[in-house]
Design a protein around this nucleic acid. Structure first.
Lengths: 186, 186
DNA sequence: GCGGTTATTTGACTTATATCAAATTCCAAT
DNA sequence: ATTGGAATTTGATATAAGTCAAATAACCGC
């Protein structure tokens, strides 16, 4: 799924807008293990994942807590830091070699001004992410660790094979020992 | 905090836009205990709370789970249902007598089209709600029941006095017995 | 392929919070 | 003020998941 296809599924893209989108984005390739943003830095960019897998995590008393995964066709950024212009508490790491499109903040703001229809794009993307997040919150609050894992597998099957156990466990809000035991019982 | 003041703190409001905002919103007063949307219905409106207190909740095995509270100066809707046009799983209830501004979906869509700068408004409001929700998710995942309650009191002090214990407990993801015990220890 | 690091599994024990049940307090309508 | 029902508190017990520690297993660079 390319960037343009993804955008076109949300708003109509004119010739002009297509050129603009092309001009304001940068192609970025990163190797497995590389960091895109470190905790404490400012977050100037949104990334669109063309291929590969990223994760966002932060430190909670020495431990890494994975906050999200982003696969092909998804956007990734330290959302809070990007929106509020505060320093990021998150670190973003490539879990695999990735091909990314980088969308710098100032370019995006110019895009919003020059093509007001892209405000809609921003709004709809944010709405979609909100709805997803809300679903996750409810799951966290009212399902057992096993149910959460089963749901993740159902919705995100292959992801489970691509990311290490400890990262998936912290994403689900459980320890890796607990996740290991859940897996052991089939 | 009036609706207009709130909007003006986010985007500049022209004479024209102000009139439009006035024309597309309806004043609605509801009495304590009244329901604005029931689970299973479609959600056609966003409400802005001029005064009073609302909550959104849904049923989880016979029990009511409070999903959010909305006070003066905040927006309220069954977000998922409003965005996706699916039927709502949430019920919205007035916890106090309320004065609301009602913003019907079709009117809002027309506003977006007629005043493209309002797309920015929609985007920014959604972004803000996303950031809030993310904070809540992290809290839920990595703090104890007591810490979550203390944070709620810190951030939302008076709310705690306005809503009944059971509703606050389910919002925090704990049972009312646990919340009662937390309160008992100061 | 070998050695060393890192990730995962397994075990024993602890703890926060849930559950079920009963007692008490609060409050609104008469 | 009195009363009945709801909300809250308190108590006893159960349980899911955490913690700490050690044993395996998987992976990576040489």
């Amino acid at each position: 799924m390319t960037f343009l296809t993804h955008i076109q599924s949300i708003i109509p893209v004119s010739e002009e807008l297509r050129d603009a989108l092309h001009n304001i984005t940068l192609i970025k390739t990163v190797k497995k293990g590389q960091l895109l943003i470190r905790a404490g830095e400012y977050c100037h960019d949104i990334y669109f994942v063309e291929s590969g897998l990223l994760r966002g995590f932060y430190y909670q008393e020495e431990k890494e807590i994975t906050n999200w995964f982003a696969r092909e066709g998804e956007f990734a950024t330290s959302f809070y830091a990007y929106i509020t212009k505060a320093t990021s508490t998150e670190t973003i790491e490539a879990l695999e070699d990735c091909e990314l499109l980088q969308l710098p903040y100032t370019n995006l703001q110019q895009l919003y001004t020059r093509f007001p229809e892209t405000e809609r794009l921003g709004r709809i993307l944010t709405e979609n992410y909100y709805v997803k997040l809300e679903g996750r919150l409810l799951g966290l609050q009212f399902t057992t660790a096993k149910e959460r894992y089963d749901n993740l597998v159902k919705q995100n099957g292959p992801l489970v094979l691509r990311a290490p156990l400890g990262q998936i466990a912290s994403y689900l809000g459980i320890t890796q020992e607990t996740l290991s035991r859940i897996r052991a019982k089939q």
